[in-house]
């Protein structure tokens, strides 16, 4: 029944453009608490979307479980998701969930953080490999500069670098000088791209809402 419940394209477009223009005007003209009021509504919508996201994740893995595609992984995910959801939900009711039992903070500290630290370790190896591969895959002056800067920065942060003063030089010249200047240049480009994207949405050229 709900499958066919959808906004017609022009209606969605009009709502999106009107909301965007109103929000833009709240940043330019003093319109009282209108911006906060609209943002409050949107934040509630975003929270609902978070739940829909969890439902989507659950649906995908239930489907995988049903089809027998890597069922162990999907089952582990669904069990972990279910336990975390129930524990976090019940924690709000002290009469239902004793404080002596491990709660969501325990899950975060003892399960999620070690797993994410492990992924961070994998990331370090992955990045080292990627940097080493860069010279062979894209042999140009920028790749050489990238790898050289990486090596100088790494050596500058070792005991040797700190004792010889290389670390200080690297921090002053590379990190605070070259890197921050480059980052500002990139950020100007990103800011202009952000404005252009916003204006295209406001003009109805880009309609990332199925309109």
């Amino acid at each position: 029944m709900f499958r066919n419940l959808k906004f017609r394209a022009p209606v969605a477009t009009i709502i999106a453009i009107a909301s965007g223009i109103i929000m833009l005007f709240t940043y330019i003209f003093p319109l009282g608490g209108l911006r906060a009021f609209i943002l409050d509504i949107v934040v509630i919508g975003a929270a609902a979307a978070l739940l829909i996201g969890v439902a989507n994740l659950t649906g995908v893995h239930l489907d995988k479980l049903r089809k027998g595609e890597k069922p162990v992984n999907s089952a582990a995910l669904l069990i972990a998701l279910g336990i975390t959801f129930v524990v976090t939900l019940l924690q709000g009711y002290t009469n239902l969930y004793p404080a002596s039992l491990p709660g969501s903070q325990w899950i975060l500290t003892n399960i999620q953080m070690p797993v994410e630290s492990t992924l961070m370790g994998i990331l370090a190896i992955t990045l080292t490999y990627a940097a080493a591969r860069l010279i062979t895959q894209r042999p140009n002056i920028f790749s050489v500069l990238f790898v050289l800067t990486l090596l100088v920065t790494l050596i500058g942060n070792t005991q040797f670098g700190l004792e010889t003063g290389l670390g200080q030089t690297v921090r002053n010249f590379v990190s605070h000088g070259l890197a921050s200047a480059g980052a500002r240049g990139i950020l100007i480009g990103v800011a202009l791209g952000t404005i252009a994207t916003g204006l295209r949405v406001l003009m109805g050229i880009d309609r990332p809402y199925g309109g």
């Binding site: 919508g45 979307a49 978070l50 829909i52 996201g53 969890v54 989507n56 199925g210 309109g211």
Partner: peptide, 15 residues
């Protein structure tokens, strides 16, 4: 990696 973006991605594909 965000619920709202997930909905928008589905909507974009459906459109």
């Amino acid at each position: 990696g965000d619920g709202l973006l997930g909905i928008l991605a589905q909507d974009t594909l459906r459109a």
